[in-house]
Design a protein around this nucleic acid. Structure first.
Length: 638
DNA sequence: CTGGGGGCAT
DNA sequence: ATGCCCC
C-alpha cells in the first residue's frame, strides 16, 4: 500500500538539492490530424483542397483548403461556397484516426513514458530527466543553440534556458521520428509547464516548433487577448469571468484573488489566476490505456422504439468489437441520450448506467460477441426506459453507448494487455517497425529504435507521476514510494514555475509568515529592494495564495510546513494567506473551514476515497500506483 | 445543422 | 449522474 514513510528516505539523498526545480515540457500538436491520415491513405488528396466531414460540419481541412479560405468547424455549406472544388471525406468513423493517434503516443512513449494525451492529436511529454541526462553526458553543453523558433526571438543565457534548448533538440528529433516512421507532421512547443508549452506550440503553424523562455511568459500571456484562449477556461468559466468584468487575460491577472474566491471557491480561483499568469504546476500524467470506450451517433430525430433499438444494436456491435480488441473487461455500461427540444437546444445529455453482469462481460472478452451484443442491447433498453417514457412521444437526437470501469482479466502474463491493441503494430505494416512489446524492451527500447541522438536510457526518463488523477490530485503527495528502484522525486510535484521577470515569480512564499520575514522567501532573482518599493496591496497580492505553489498540487522543494496543520483544531491550511482569508465574507470563510476540517483526516489515509471500491490499483492507469509495473502491463508480453 | 470522442471533479 | 474541461 501507499507508504509515506518510504519516500522520505530516498528523496533528498538521491536528488541533489542543486537540481533545478523547473521542468522541460513538450507539447506536440499534429497538423490537421484527420486530414493528414486521409492523405496518407490516399496521397492523391495531397494536392487537392481536402475537408473532413462529420455530419454537416467540416471538422478539419488540409492546408491547401485553408489557403482558399476554408477553416476548421465551418459548416459544409459555407465551405463549399468558399471553395467549390473542396474534396470531402467522411470522418465519422474514427477507427483509423484513433489507431494512428495511439501510434504517435506509443512512439513518444518509447523515448520517455511520461506522455499525456489530449484528444487524438496532442501529446504532452515531460522530458526533464532526459534533458538532465543529456546535459550530464555532454561536457561541452555550454554552447547549445535552439532548434526551431524562439518565441520573441530573444535569448538570454541562463541555466534554465540551456535546458529548454536541449528540450528543443529533443522535440526536433521526436518530430523527425514521427515523420519518418509514421509520415506525420506537426508542431511542438517547448516550455517549463504544460500551459505554456501548449500555448507556444501553435506560434508557427504548420510543421514547426517554438521554445518559450521564461522571460517571454508575460508577453505570450498578454498577447492572448480573450480569456477563452487560456486552456482551462471554457465557455462557462469565461462567462462567469465576464460577469465579473473580466474579458482579457490581463484583467484576470490583475483581479483581486478574493473576488475570484467568492465566485469560484478557493481552489478554482487559484487555478484561474495562476493560469492567467502562465503558472501551471500540473504534472504530465501518463495516459496509458483509455478509461472508457464509447461509440455514438447523432441524427436529426428518432422517435420510434424500434429505431432506437436498431441504433443501439449497431453502436454496440461496433463497440463490443473494439472492447474485444482491447482485451480488458468492462464492468459498467452507460447509455447516454440527447433529447430534441426547440428551446433547450443547447446540448444537455442524460445518461443512465449499470453494472455489467460478469457472464456478459466474459462474453465480450472471450469472443462471443453476438451473444454479448444481444444481452447488452436488452440492458441498454432497460436503461433507455428509465430515461424515456416510450408510451409518450419522444425525440432523441443522439445515442451514446459506453463501456467503463475497465479491468484487465488476468493479473499476470498472457493476458492481452489492455493497451496492446492501441499500441499494437498492424501486421500488414509494410515497414519494419520497432517492437515495443516485451517487458524488457520497455526499458531498453532505445536499442530497437536505433536512437541516434537521444541516447537516453529510459530509466532516466521515469519521472513518477505521483498519484493518479483518480486518486485525487489533492493528496498526491501521499503517493507510494518508488518500489522498483525509482526514487520519489519530490521536485516532480513541486514544479516551481520559472516566470522570468514577471512580478508573479514571487512564487515561493511560505504561508503564514509575517510580511517582514516573508520577504526572504522571494525568489533569488527577485530584488527585495524592488519588492519593498511596491505598494503594500501589490505586495500582499504577490504573496497571496494565487502565487504560491498550491498545496493541492505538490510540496515545496524547500522545507515547508505540511500543507495541512497538524493540530487538531481546524486551522487555515498552509497555502492560504491568512490576510486574504480574513477578508473573505464570513459565510465563505465558514464554508472553507468546514471543507478543510473534512479533508484533514484524509491526510493520513490517502485511500479514503469513499468509493466502496477498495480497488486494487492494478486496473487503473499506469501512473496510479507503481509506474513501472502498471506501465509494463500495457505492452504485449509477446 | 456543433462531431465524436475523451478526461476530471463534484 | 451531471457538469466542466480538452481536442
Amino acid at each position: 500500500m501507499d507508504n509515506i514513510g518510504e519516500d522520505s528516505e530516498d528523496d533528498d539523498s538521491v536528488n541533489k538539492i542543486t537540481t533545478p526545480s523547473s521542468r522541460v515540457i513538450l507539447h506536440f500538436d499534429l497538423d490537421c490530424f484527420y486530414a493528414q491520415v486521409e492523405m496518407i491513405k490516399n496521397p492523391a488528396l495531397r494536392e487537392l483542397p481536402l475537408g473532413i466531414q462529420q455530419k454537416y460540419i467540416l471538422v478539419t481541412c488540409n492546408y491547401v483548403a485553408r489557403e482558399r479560405g476554408v477553416t476548421k468547424l465551418m459548416s459544409v455549406t459555407d465551405a463549399k461556397e468558399k471553395c467549390p472544388e473542396l474534396v470531402l471525406v467522411k470522418g465519422e468513423d474514427l477507427t483509423h484516426y484513433r489507431e494512428m493517434s495511439y501510434k504517435v503516443t506509443e512512439l513518444l512513449m518509447s523515448f520517455c513514458p511520461l506522455v499525456e494525451r489530449l484528444g487524438f492529436d496532442e501529446n504532452f511529454m515531460d522530458v526533464t530527466e532526459m534533458v538532465e541526462r543529456k546535459l550530464a553526458d555532454t561536457p561541452k553543453s555550454d554552447s547549445v543553440s535552439f532548434k526551431g523558433h524562439v518565441y520573441n526571438n530573444i535569448n538570454t543565457k541562463t541555466p534554465d534556458n540551456l535546458r529548454l534548448a536541449v528540450g528543443s533538440h529533443i522535440a526536433a528529433e521526436l518530430r523527425e521520428e514521427m515523420y519518418t516512421r509514421l509520415g506525420l507532421t506537426g508542431c511542438a512547443g517547448i516550455a517549463t509547464n504544460k500551459l505554456l508549452a501548449k500555448l507556444v506550440s501553435g506560434t508557427f503553424k504548420p510543421n514547426q516548433q517554438t521554445v518559450l523562455l521564461p522571460e517571454s511568459v508575460s508577453d505570450i500571456m498578454g498577447c492572448l487577448g480573450g480569456l477563452r484562449r487560456v486552456p482551462g477556461v471554457g465557455h462557462q468559466t469565461a462567462k462567469r469571468l465576464q460577469a465579473l468584468g473580466l474579458v482579457g487575460v490581463l484583467d484576470l491577472q490583475m483581479c483581486p484573488i478574493s473576488d475570484l474566491v467568492t465566485e469560484f471557491g478557493l481552489p478554482t480561483a487559484q487555478r484561474l489566476k495562476n493560469l492567467s499568469l502562465g503558472l501551471d504546476n500540473s504534472p504530465v500524467t501518463s495516459s496509458g490505456a483509455p478509461q472508457s470506450l464509447s461509440d455514438e451517433d447523432s441524427f436529426r430525430k428518432m422517435s420510434l422504439t424500434q429505431e432506437v433499438l436498431d441504433k443501439i444494436r449497431e453502436l454496440l456491435s461496433s463497440l463490443v468489437k473494439r472492447m474485444q480488441k482491447d482485451g480488458r473487461q468492462p464492468h459498467t455500461f452507460r447509455l447516454t441520450i440527447r433529447r430534441h427540444s426547440a428551446t433547450n437546444k443547447w446540448f444537455s445529455r442524460e445518461s443512465r448506467q449499470c453494472p455489467i453482469p460478469n457472464h456478459i462481460g466474459k462474453k465480450i472478452t472471450s469472443g462471443f460477441s453476438d451473444e454479448a451484443v444481444s444481452q447488452l442491447v436488452s440492458l441498454a433498453m432497460k436503461l433507455f426506459d428509465k430515461m424515456v417514457d416510450s408510451s409518450a412521444a419522444f425525440h432523441i437526437t443522439l445515442i451514446n453507448v459506453c463501456f467503463c470501469n475497465l479491468q484487465s482479466r488476468s493479473t499476470g502474463m498472457g493476458g492481452k494487455g489492455s493497451i496492446s491493441s492501441f499500441f499494437a503494430r498492424s501486421t500488414s505494416s509494410p515497414r519494419k517497425t520497432p517492437k515495443i512489446s516485451t517487458q524488457n524492451q520497455v526499458m531498453s527500447s532505445h536499442i530497437d529504435l536505433e536512437m541516434k541522438s537521444i541516447k537516453i536510457n529510459h530509466q532516466y526518463c521515469f519521472r513518477r507521476t505521483l498519484g493518479s488523477k483518480r486518486r485525487g490530485k489533492k493528496f498526491n503527495f501521499t503517493a507510494p514510494s518508488s518500489s522498483h528502484g525509482f526514487t520519489w522525486n519530490k521536485r516532480f510535484v513541486v514544479g516551481g514555475e520559472e516566470v522570468g521577470n514577471f512580478p508573479s515569480n514571487v512564487a515561493e512564499c511560505k504561508p503564514q509568515e509575517t510580511k517582514s520575514s516573508v520577504i526572504h522567501q522571494l525568489r533569488p532573482n527577485v530584488d527585495p529592494e524592488v519588492f519593498k518599493l511596491l505598494p503594500e496591496d501589490i505586495q500582499k497580492e504577490l504573496l497571496s495564495p494565487a502565487y504560491v505553489e498550491s498545496v493541492s498540487d505538490g510540496l515545496s522543494k524547500s522545507p515547508r510546513p505540511p500543507p495541512f496543520p497538524q493540530s487538531s483544531d481546524c486551522e487555515i491550511p498552509g497555502n492560504v494567506d491568512p490576510t486574504v482569508f480574513s477578508e473573505l465574507p464570513l459565510d465563505v470563510q465558514r464554508e472553507l473551514m468546514s471543507e478543510w476540517k473534512q479533508h484533514k483526516p484524509v491526510l493520513k489515509s490517502p485511500s479514503f476515497r469513499k468509493s466502496g471500491r477498495t480497488t486494487t490499483d492494478k486496473d487503473r492507469k499506469p501512473a496510479a500506483k507503481n509506474s513501472q509495473t502498471n506501465l509494463l502491463k500495457f505492452f504485449k508480453p509477446n
